[in-house]
């Protein structure tokens, strides 16, 4: 691992504390996105159930939009974040390594995982946005279907 004399890294602990805080915040964001995706999936299910009572073109279209929104919400839940660290490999690889080198390599690896997870979280957010937009379309179609029903009913 270490093939050169380590450079003094006086602020390594400060940087590490900051990385810890940012990674903890990333974990919270990941959980919050998963909760949002679950909520969107639930709402999609309710809309599909509501639309199934009346079978007209607008409501069927609304139902379809809600079904695709549900698929997008599932898509948001699927990308798992964090490969995590292999504790046994850390033990075997770093137990006899210079402290500063071990701290720096672990820090770099955690930053690398953080950056990879950020890409995955961005994908989650994109799916959530798609799901929200499709749900909005589904609601608009269902409401239009109901208004059209009432309107046509009065016209008859």
């Amino acid at each position: 691992m270490a093939d050169e004399a380590p450079v003094a890294l006086p602020s390594l602990d400060i940087v590490r504390a900051e990385v810890d805080a940012v990674i903890a915040e990333q974990d919270r964001r990941g959980s919050s996105f998963d909760s949002k995706a679950g909520f969107l999936l639930g709402i999609s299910g309710v809309l599909i159930g509501l639309a199934s009572r009346h079978a007209d073109a607008l409501r069927i279209a609304g139902q379809l939009a809600a079904a695709v929104a549900a698929a997008a919400a599932i898509g948001a839940m699927v990308p798992r974040t964090t490969a995590g660290l292999d504790l046994r490999a850390i033990r075997n690889g770093y137990l006899t390594t210079e402290v500063v080198v071990a701290k720096q390599r672990l820090l770099d690896t955690r930053i690398h995982l953080y950056e990879r997870d950020e890409e995955r979280l961005s994908r989650k957010v994109r799916w959530i946005k798609v799901s929200v937009m499709l749900l909005a379309v589904a609601v608009a179609l269902l409401v239009t279907g109901t208004i059209a029903d009432v309107w046509l009913g009065e016209a008859r």
Binding site: M1, P6, V7, A8, L9, R80, T82, A83, G84, L85, D86, L87, A89, I90, G93, Y94, Q104, R105, L106, D108, T109, I111, H112, L113
Partner: peptide, 17 residues
């Protein structure tokens, strides 16, 4: 001093879940 190059260790990346 310039900081050492960014060097994540692929061998310690785990298999979470």
């Amino acid at each position: 001093p310039t900081p050492p190059p960014f060097a994540p260790d692929p061998e310690i990346i785990g298999n979470y879940e």
